[in-house]
Design a protein around this nucleic acid. Structure first.
Length: 837
DNA sequence: ATCTGTGGCCACCAGC
DNA sequence: GCTGGTGGCCAC
């Protein structure tokens, strides 16, 4: 009976929104079934999503100019040329426009989503959509994450003013900026200061009754019954359970909904889902939602009765937004810059363990054999963890997603699924549209030429950062200075952008970029220089300060911390994408020039230090390590850098001492507060056996207590004792296998290894399990061929203890070498074997 | 279908 | 045994 209710409710979604209170635009796209573009608004008062459909029946197009000629409404090719010549659009790089090469872009797209479905032709828009423009605000006026209200058929922006306290802070930044940058800074600050309302959402996790134990059920087939569904939200704790035998099941505070019939259960679930504007899953695109969709079809549901729709690698909700956290956490930029590499593996268990400190429940038997009580607990727990990932630290993750959406001008469901190059593409495309500039195509960009430098590493396209040979030994009282966001600063200060590097003006050719053959335009400001430069300034000189502003509340400071993090992610990638072929605005001379200026700046700074008689112990890309500089000297260097180079050089940290090895990117430092900083040493790497890593960190604790030169002699004995302890544990084999396992990630799928067969691949092949890129293989070194075995198959007798001793030796040798100890000397023997015995 | 960059170290592989 | 190359992880 209620199936029709479901269909009816979903049908209502198609109705045009008439009036809407101020709501946040969170998503936009194209509905293939309805053949209509849509906007999704989140209403913070009702906690509901309003879907606005484009009801003008304009078909979206994506084509090059060649195909425009075939359109009847543009009779002459000249019409198009006229439109372009009227300067309605411009090319940033002052070239004669070759109409045949213009790829039309979509004025309706929010951000830069490519693809036929969401792309409209701008020329067509000018011809046919003038009336349309009068009724609605599109493209350059619509920003994801901003607030709008709807009255009748019109959409109006609704801006929140910047609070006085924040505005005051902004004034100093504005005062120090040029006119052009001022506009951008104000624009960003207005957008980023919009409040972020609490977002009502639930997480969803399903379990399937599968006969196969070590294989995930195929969601396309959906042959097996869905037996439980966990739903967790702010005020929701529910578990749907297929429980025909009516076993007694209870979980504290959780509502258990028992069903005898699977179809009834899915129907109830779908109806409930309609109440939630957002659904969170961990891998719902590939599994949970996909499975539910196909399973529902199999059980006789009509397409119109299922609130889910499927794309190629995407599962969406008709009535709301689906966020798949698996894809977001797999994003390298998020992993490294937003979560500081706190997790390494992209499973729900690994991510939640390291971020929340909460694990999945352990299963001793396959899902199919679980008693209902255990099954319910397991399923509920997964849903709970998934929800917690979005709610911990006052909804940090949701806020981060919204802030990235605001900067990237991208729907939140895309933010979660796409990589950083797509974010930046969307951001830059949007800006082109805003200023009525045509987006250059690949051919035009490639015409700029290549790199003027040659890379040090074979196979790379251009030369990167400079790494200086370290001065080995122990250095007391070391100050580390670094340039704040060096590459974005360079892009700003040197006006780097695809249209300004190697510009067409003869007169500009003399403005050579240091360390390269490239020159830079001094007639116009580059588009990427303005965007990246203004974002950099806001991060360094505004938001970072607000996070420490005592006049703000804790909540406010946390909010600004999120903005700072999001900016960090985007800024860090903004240089890299310029040198990435996959990036649509790929322009090698820009990346090449950026790195070249970086080398120039660091070299200049090093010579300045020498001039001031400050010893430079080490330097890597954007940092310099100085031996015992006075505060006056540090200030002098920083002032000089600001004055002469136009970049900010800050004191990053003070080391009580630094132990430099002979190797680059390999050192150990103890901060003034006793914290130990280890860089690059094998002992901290994630793939080595935990046993060795633990031993390594154990020994490090001794070093944290060292304050003077004399203390080193005392430490020597402690270290010797500790190493001996750990060694004894190894040979007595009182260490669990797990702790002896190497844990190496598969860089690619198993069958793609053709050149060589590394050890982790040998082990993986023995496993005969389906493994894919990103999976971690745990293996142990054995005396039996082929020398390694996956941890699942190995017995303790097979362990090759000698290999482990050697590994320990080389790991500790690095450490002791940094400290200036001779490994053998500290052990008081000439040969290692003597010591061990 | 999706993917920011280069520099550097280490262990191991495969071929000589 | 030497050597160049591959793969992984890390620094920035």
């Amino acid at each position: 009976m209620s199936l029709s209710l479901l269909a009816k409710k979903l049908e209502e979604l198609g109705k045009e929104v008439q009036d809407l209170e101020p709501s946040m635009l969170i998503s936009a796209g194209y509905d293939g079934e309805k053949e209509k573009a849509y906007l999704k608004f989140y209403n913070p008062n009702s906690n509901k999503i309003a879907i606005w459909y484009d009801n003008t029946n304009h078909k979206p197009y994506c084509f090059s100019m060649e195909s425009i000629e075939n359109l009847s409404f543009l009779k002459e090719r000249e019409d198009i040329i006229d439109i372009v010549r009227e300067k309605k659009f411009s090319l940033l790089y002052d070239k004669e426009i070759e109409v045949s090469k213009i790829i039309a872009k979509d004025p309706l797209a929010i951000g830069g989503s490519p693809g036929q479905k969401s792309v409209r032709n701008i020329i067509k828009a000018w011809e046919a959509d003038i009336k349309y423009y009068e009724n609605y605000i599109y493209d350059k006026d619509l920003t994801v994450g901003s607030f709008y209200f709807i009255k009748g058929s019109k959409i109006y922006p609704y801006n929140f003013p910047i609070p006085e306290k924040v505005s005051r802070n902004l004034q100093s930044l504005l005062a120090n900026s040029s006119e052009e940058f001022k506009n951008y800074i104000l624009m960003w600050a207005t957008l980023l200061n919009q409040p972020i309302p609490p977002l009502k959402r639930i997480s969803l996790d399903i379990e399937v009754l599968s006969k196969e134990t070590d294989r995930i059920p195929d969601p396309e087939q959906a042959n097996d019954k869905v037996i439980s569904i966990g739903l967790v939200g702010d005020e929701v704790k529910k578990l749907y359970l297929l429980n025909s035998e009516e076993e007694k099941v209870s979980i504290p505070d959780v509502t258990i909904l028992s069903f005898k019939d699977e179809k009834d259960m899915l129907e109830a679930l779908f109806l409930e889902l309609l109440e939630y504007p957002m659904v969170i899953t961990f891998n719902g695109d590939e599994f949970d939602l996909k499975y539910l969709y196909h399973r529902a079809k199999k059980l006789g549901f009509n397409k119109s009765e299922i609130p889910i729709y499927l794309g190629r690698d995407f599962a969406g909700l008709k009535h709301g937004v689906h966020l798949d956290l698996y894809k977001f956490f797999s994003n390298r930029s998020i992993q490294i810059y937003a979560f500081n590499n706190r997790y390494v593996e992209y499973t729900l268990n690994a991510v939640s363990e390291s971020i929340l400190g909460v694990s999945k429940l352990e299963l001793e038997v396959p899902i199919a054999d679980l008693p209902k009580q255990k099954l319910a607990e397991y399923c509920y727990n997964d849903a709970y963890i998934t929800y917690r990932l979005t709610s911990y630290e006052s909804d940090l993750l949701m806020k981060l997603i919204i802030v990235i959406a605001r900067i990237a001008k991208m729907p939140i469901d895309d933010v979660v699924r796409l990589g950083v190059s797509n974010w930046i593409r969307s951001l830059l495309y949007f800006e082109h549209r805003r200023i009525n500039a045509l987006i250059p195509n690949q051919e035009e960009l490639l015409a700029k030429g290549g790199a003027s430098s040659s890379a040090i590493i074979k196979g790379k396209k251009y030369r990167g950062g400079l790494v200086v040979e370290p001065i080995p030994g122990i250095h007391f009282n070391v100050a580390v200075l670094d340039f704040a966001s060096l590459y974005p600063s360079i892009i700003k200060v040197y006006n780097l952008s695809y249209e300004t590097v190697r510009c067409i003006h003869e007169e500009c050719r003399k403005n050579l970029i240091p360390e390269s053959d490239h020159w830079i335009c001094n007639k116009r400001k580059g588009i990427t220089s303005l965007i990246i430069g203004s974002l950099r300034d806001l991060r360094v000189n505004h938001y970072k300060r607000l996070t420490k502003d005592p006049s703000l509340s804790r909540e406010e400071r946390e909010f600004y911390q999120v903005i700072t993090q999001a900016l960090k992610v985007i800024l860090n990638a903004s240089y890299g994408v310029m040198g990435a072929e996959i990036f649509p605005l790929y322009c090698l001379p820009v990346a090449d020039a950026t790195a070249a200026v970086g080398r120039y700046i660091i070299k200049k700074t090093i010579s300045k230090c020498r001039e001031l008689e400050v010893e430079v112990i080490y330097s890597d890309t954007d940092s310099i390590f100085l031996r015992s500089p006075s505060l006056v000297q540090i200030e002098a260097i920083a002032d000089w850098a600001q004055r002469e180079l136009g970049v900010e050089l800050d004191l990053d940290k003070n080391y009580r001492y630094v132990a430099m090895s002979q190797r680059k990117k390999n050192y150990l430092g103890v901060l003034v507060n006793g914290t130990i900083d280890v860089k690059g040493l094998t002992g901290k790497k994630s793939h080595i056996p935990p046993f060795i890593r633990e031993a390594f960190y154990d020994i490090l604790t001794i070093l944290g207590n060292i304050k003077t030169k004399e203390d080193f002699d005392m430490a020597r004995e402690d270290i010797r004792r500790k190493i001996r302890e750990w060694y004894k544990r190894l040979i007595s084999k009182e260490i669990e296998l797990e702790k002896l396992s190497f844990q190496v990630m598969l860089g690619k799928n198993l069958d793609s290894y053709r050149d060589v067969t590394p050890q982790h691949i040998k082990a993986a092949k023995l496993l005969r399990k389906e493994l894919k890129a990103g999976d971690i293989v745990k293996y142990v070194k054995t005396v039996t061929p082929p020398g390694v075995k996956p941890i699942e198959l190995v017995k303790i007798e097979e362990i090759d203890t000698a290999k482990y001793i050697e590994y320990m030796r080389s790991t500790f040798e690095q450490l002791l070498d940094s400290l200036g100890y001779e490994f053998d000397e500290i052990l008081g023997v000439t040969k290692l074997e003597d010591f061990w015995s």
